[in-house]
Design a protein around this nucleic acid. Structure first.
Lengths: 238, 238
DNA sequence: TTATTCAATGTAGTATACAAACTGTACACT
DNA sequence: AGTGTACAGTTTGTATACTACATTGAATAA
């Protein structure tokens, strides 16, 4: 297979490339939960051997984004909506803590990053681009996580936010990726609270924001039958 | 290298074996923070090729237990005591949340596991076995995490607890692994609160427990010079 | 003596080769 | 017909081979 022929980075880049690509596709549901991943096929898709592909899959497995059936194959981690309440609890807790900390510890440089992410968010909102909106939303909160200056909490928070990308994707996709503008005004208020170093307000807004998100998704779940969107097993679900 | 000759599991077991071994040795400081890990050497130590070793290292890297310098080598993740305050904050937050949830959600089966871990803890205390005590302490809290029935929080909590094993190890080792009995009576009270489903008390005790641990370690840090125990870079530090 | 270049060496990243386990199908036997 | 076994195909897990990057140290020049 044309060894030595490579487009981008001659070394070390292969595994990272596959990792990033698969990760994005998993989080955007281009790869459906439960879908089976074949190392060889992925390898030939990227023009790489199985080794870097394997590395990428191991990383993803370690993050819980893929599940590896021993000696059989690895599949995109199923989304178990039955523990969505757990998810919400965790998101709420970490979001409150992190946003409060950010209000306390933020520096001006942090604010710039946060506002920039919010800019991208509003941009996507204006373009009615659901995909970009989800990503910018994640970046916005991750930026707040960084501003909290606690790598343990920020890591856990980022992990949860990523999981949320898949949930939000299901939500929007089910509405044909129509963008609902009701999300628009919550972020600026959070920014303002962080900028004003108002810890209590920041925490309260963060809490409300998580609740809102959960409420909307639960409402959506109720509108459909839970069974219908059980993406847990099949490739062709939803 | 005698292909096909292996003691335990003929397939999939190799990588897991290396992973578990390295992980334990990292968390017990048998492998010092900053120590360099050579894939080939590890491979020959376990009678395996580089492939399974690589898989183990990738997993560990993904968990933050080793740091991989691109194209150079991988080293045991340095312990940065300068962000010990961050660590404490995160531990406190998650411990409070998880212990409270455990008091709310626990089932009888959970209590059995928790008490069993506490049994091992007291056993180790009696034997003055610092290593076993640290491990049992971690298991005790992880069991509480399981009882909370929130896999997101339990995962984050477990991750933080593992990091704590290294910190506790430094602490005890510096005192020649002498076991201080003042830890003894906090766990039973936490168990009692969980058993009685007293959420507020459980959270308060969990909070106090985290504070105690942090206080002791900070006191230890103050007694030595911070620079002396900076295990960040060198192999032979401490 | 000190700085710089370059070859030599070692190790990580990738490719390939081989072995074991699982899957499914076909066929035989009851 | 139903069940069990054999065999082929597919795919993971591991071993080995190869390549490129990086560091080291010696040789040479200033």
């Amino acid at each position: 297979m044309a060894a030595g022929e490579n487009g981008s980075k001659s070394r070390g880049g292969g595994a990272r490339k596959v990792y990033n690509a698969l990760r994005t596709e998993i989080l955007t549901l281009v790869l459906e939960p439960g879908e089976l991943l074949d190392e060889a096929r992925i390898g030939e898709r990227f023009g790489l051997s199985r080794s870097p592909v394997r590395e990428a899959l191991i990383r993803l497995s370690s993050e819980g984004l893929v599940t590896t059936l021993p000696n059989k194959s690895t599949q995109v981690a199923p989304l178990q909506i039955e523990d969505f309440p757990q998810y919400l609890d965790a998101l709420d807790l970490l979001q409150r803590a992190v946003t409060r900390l950010a209000a306390k510890q933020r520096r001006d440089a942090d604010l710039v990053i946060i506002k920039s992410a919010q800019g991208a968010f509003e941009d996507a909102l204006g373009r009615r681009d659901a995909l970009a909106m989800i990503e910018a939303n994640r970046d916005f909160h991750v930026a707040i996580g960084e501003a909290a200056r606690n790598r343990y909490l920020a890591d856990s928070y980022a992990r949860i936010l990523d999981e949320g990308r898949r949930i939000l994707r299901i939500y929007f996709r089910s509405y044909g990726d129509a963008v609902h503008p009701e999300f628009a005004d919550e972020h600026p208020r959070i920014i303002a609270a962080i900028e004003a170093r108002d810890e209590d307000l920041a925490e309260r807004l963060a809490h409300a924001h998580a609740r809102q998100m959960g409420e909307r998704f639960l409402q959506y779940l109720r509108s459909r039958h839970t069974a219908d969107i059980s993406v847990a097993g099949g490739v062709d679900a939803v």
